[in-house]
Each structure stands twice: as C-alpha cells, then as structure tokens.
Write a protein that binds this DNA or RNA. Sequence first.
DNA 1: CCTGATCTTGATGACTTCTTGACGACGTCC
DNA 2: GGACGTCGTCAAGAAGTCATCAAGATCAGG
Lengths: 225, 225
Amino acid sequence: MTRVLIVDDEPQILRALRINLTARQYEVLVAADGTAALQVAAHDRPDLVVLDLGLPDLDGVEVIRKLRTWTPVPIIVLSGRVGSSDKVDALDAGADDYVTKPFNVDELLARIRAVTRRQGGAEPTAPVRIGRFTIDLAARTAVADSGESVHLTKTEWHLLDILVRNPGALVTQRYLLQQVWGPTYLHETHYLRQYLAQLRRKLEYDPARPRHLLTEPGMGYRYAP
Amino acid sequence: MTRVLIVDDEPQILRALRINLTARQYEVLVAADGTAALQVAAHDRPDLVVLDLGLPDLDGVEVIRKLRTWTPVPIIVLSGRVGSSDKVDALDAGADDYVTKPFNVDELLARIRAVTRRQGGAEPTAPVRIGRFTIDLAARTAVADSGESVHLTKTEWHLLDILVRNPGALVTQRYLLQQVWGPTYLHETHYLRQYLAQLRRKLEYDPARPRHLLTEPGMGYRYAP
DNA sequence: CCTGATCTTGATGACTTCTTGACGACGTCC
DNA sequence: GGACGTCGTCAAGAAGTCATCAAGATCAGG
C-alpha cells in the first residue's frame, strides 16, 4: 500500500486530499508545518511526499533540502504563487514535480501515479517510444517502425537521456544546462530551445505540436511517455 | 542458485542487502574492502558483483578494472557520488549498471534481475557478416564468399570483437581505448581512427562508405549487422 | 643481425557538430 | 492596446572531429 505524506497548513486542503487519497487506497499521513513533516517523514518513511511551499515555520525549499540529505523519496510540490522562482528552486533542490494552486485533484492524482510508477520497477534500459520511434538509451539507437533509424548527436542524446530518465517529470532549464553544458552555461536557454527543436524535428510526428517533448514555459521541459 | 558478492564498507548496508537477497534465494558473499573483494571473487566465482565505489583501501574503479582483467562477471556499482564523470568512469571500466545512494532496495533488486537476465541470453560466438566476409570470432577467421580469407592483426581482432559483441549498440571511444590499449590511452582517439580505417579497408565493400562499421562523431563506433 | 609485419606518430583536407545571431509568434503584465 | 520577455525557427560562421596518406619506431622470427 502506497503511503503518502501531505504537508500543508490549510486544514481544508489536508481534508480534501485525505478523503480523495484514502478513497483510492493510499495510506495518508499529514503534517501542518515543516518541522512536523520532517519528523513524520523520518519516523514513518512515506513512499511519496506532497509538499506545500508556503509553510508557517520553515521555507518549503529548505524542507526539500533536508529530506534530500537522507532520502530519495519522490516529492511533489504544491505552490500558490504562479510564475515565481520558488518553484524552480524547489525542483532544483530535488523535488520531482509541481502543481499550482488552486489545483485540480485529478491532475494531482495523475502526477502521483506518474511519480510512484517511476519509482518502482523502472528497468534501467527499457526502450521508450517517441512519435514513431523506439528509443534505446543504452544502445543509443532510435529506430522507426518502418525500420529506418534516425541519427542523433552527442548533445542531443545527452539531453534526451536526462528527460527520458525522468518520465512525466518536469526537468528545469537550470538542471539540463548544468548537466549537459556545465555550470557556466546556466543562462544559455537558447541552447535548450535550439536542441529541443532539433529533437522534436527528428522524433515527433508534428514538431510544431509536440506530444512527448513538452515545454513548460519559464521552467523547463518534460518528457511525456 | 545465483551467487552475489556484495562489496561495501558500511555494515548496515551489508546487513540489509544480505537479508533481502537471502530472502529471495540468492547466495550471498560479502567483502568490506577492495582487496577482500578481489580475493573472494577469485576464490568463489560469484555470478554477480554489487560494488560500492567508496572503499577504504582501493578505488572502486580500480577494483572494476582488476576484475575485468580476468572475468566478465556482471558488476553493479553503488555510489554516493552523483557526478556523471564518476558514473562514466565506472561504466567505461566495465561496470554493467549504476545505482546512486541512497538507493531503493526494490530498484536494486530489479537491476540485479535485469543484469542476470541479460547474462543468460547472449549467444557469444555466432558468425557474423561484414561486407562479403563471414567473421567467426571464436575461430578468429574472416573468410570471403569466394573462399579467400583476410588476415587481421591481434589489435584489429580485439577491436572488432568488442564492436561485434554489441551489435547495433554504440560503443564509446573511451570504452574501446580502455579495453584494447588500457587506461593510459583514453585520449588516443587517433588509434581508433587508424584501426577502424584498417578494418574497413579489409572488410567493407566500399571503405569510404562503410555499411557495418559506423562512426558516431564525438561518441564512438557502432557495428551494424 | 636482418627482414617483414605491426604499431605508433605526424600532417592535411573534408566533414559534422556546435555556437551564435536575427526575427517573428505567442502570451503576460501593465 | 502596447511593451516586454520567452519561445520556436532559420541560417551561417566557428570549432572540433574524422579519414586518409605517409613515414618512422618497434617487435618477432629466422
């Protein structure tokens, strides 16, 4: 049974989520502030954390950092502020996904499923599909159903690798730039646009309307399986 | 019964893995440092090695290299370091998979299953075709349809061997250099160009437009069946 | 010690990939 | 409705990588 820790200081949100998650066979733990959240997480070892960034005692990003010092438990962030850099900071600190308040419960449930699914039995080198292509990250091959294969460059593979290894999750621009080009390129978002366009052109059915390599404006990119 | 050697200097990790693996019908061997690991591996011939990179005596990558001088046993690396260069070094040295600490036990078990499964199914020495030649890696022969045979040197065989044993997959320059010339030649990409040209000249129909021994610029080479 | 094969090293032109700049489309905020 | 910032796209020069030819160094066998 999947155990979910919900961290929020608004009682009505706690209540709504508890009802919805319990009804779907999740075991629900709750905490109303950051200190309590850290204690409960350490004591009860949840399989997933849903964390509101606006807590009364600690900064939400700080809670993520503290959790990440000892556990890789998936964290989904709830945030009230739209377009603020808090969310990017949270993702960079190690959160797995974010949902903006007011949020749709179905969307949150979908993200919870995506994140827990990834956690469990993800075979390291199972091929994934994008458009009409089957991508094998280990062998570095991208083969169409027709049999013909597409050639990707080193940088293209590197980017695709990171996105595909985090299926369904939002990956920040900062993280991608950091991983692929190094810490001195953190603001060269142009590179990302350039290479994402290239990947879409090579892999997506309709590069102008991507279905798998999605842009999250202002934040980053997401691979949708 | 699958025999697993666990190499880690933290007693609690040894203990946790021993319990989990024993419960799943694995036979478990343990070693707390690199020297002991090499001895146990040589003496008891495990079917799989789970190796922590941070050992008290030897560097983990060094342990991998030493193992790889005499055995193709699958190696799964555990590491607290998240940097991608550590990962690349370990994989290039011959590791089969890589898990970052803190790790999820279920994930590790899944990777153990994946790696041992992969082990079983690989036919090592079926003859393959390149150009008009039939290559038998076991017998070290390359015979044309007309009956005449081509002579390949030791180094040429070694390179061809690695490429052909990974059909369709990209093999990195680092890996080839590491395997054929050793760890001190990791940047001598000129050797690769030289010998790949030689192989193409001897085996391909049109050496200038190879159909089986393909270059992946900036990354490595690939044998296309 | 000599000879032929193999390995190593150097130089050059061709090619691929990376980087950079410019511009229009879209959405947001004032 | 207009200014602003972000995104997607096209295009071309810069940088890096590769294939090939060629010659010197090294090694093994006779």
